[in-house]
């Protein structure tokens, strides 16, 4: 179980229980998400305790944002942007290539839990379409040839 990353550690709980406490929720969730790739029930319970709010509130926030996961995903998350500029530039071919190379469909995770393949909205790389995100990294001008190299580099 990952603690909320020391965001609250040196604070006296009582001092910190103002409403602005709650504004730390996203940074805390981001920290947990970064560290273990998903946010478990126990994490949500813990965070709720620390912030003095109900776990359901944490859950409702976690499920609102598409970059928070409540289930364990692959070590690397590959997101192919399916915005219009990418589609015009052939992003479906890129999706197919990833599916072929990873032997999974969009939305799935490889058996060795290394890769998850997803689609995402515009990632602000429309000038370098087709573009993808590998975890936090933005990569543009993807070709089917590069797909293999990207996977190899991550392995």
């Amino acid at each position: 179980m990952v603690k909320s990353g020391g965001y609250m550690k040196d604070k006296n709980k009582e001092v910190f229980l103002g409403e602005e406490n709650r504004s730390r929720l996203l940074p805390i969730l981001q920290n947990v998400q970064d560290k273990k790739g998903y946010i478990s029930d126990a994490d949500m319970q813990n965070i709720a305790d620390e912030l003095g709010i109900h776990p359901v509130e944490v859950y409702s926030v976690v499920t609102f944002y598409s970059f928070f996961n409540i289930n364990k995903k692959g070590k690397y998350i590959i997101r192919v942007s399916n915005c219009i500029s990418n589609v015009l530039a052939g992003s479906e071919k890129i999706v197919k290539e990833f599916e072929k190379k990873l032997k999974i469909k969009v939305g799935e995770t490889t058996e060795d839990k290394k890769f998850t393949l997803e689609r995402t909205s515009c990632i602000g790389m429309c000038d370098q379409a087709p573009a993808i995100m590998v975890d936090d990294k933005l990569i543009g001008k993807i070709t089917p040839q590069i797909v293999g190299e990207i996977i190899k580099d991550l392995k």
């Binding site: 709650r22 504004s23 730390r24 929720l25 996203l26 940074p27 969730l29 981001q30 998400q33 912030l51 409702s60 926030v61 609102f64 944002y65 598409s66 970059f67 928070f68 995402t120 909205s121």
Partner: peptide, 25 residues
Amino acid sequence: IRIGAGAYICGEETALIESMEGQRG
């Protein structure tokens, strides 16, 4: 710096503020 978490609606200014306050956007 505050970072979003993949929600277009958070660009709307009041949703953005909700998000900064740790709420759903």
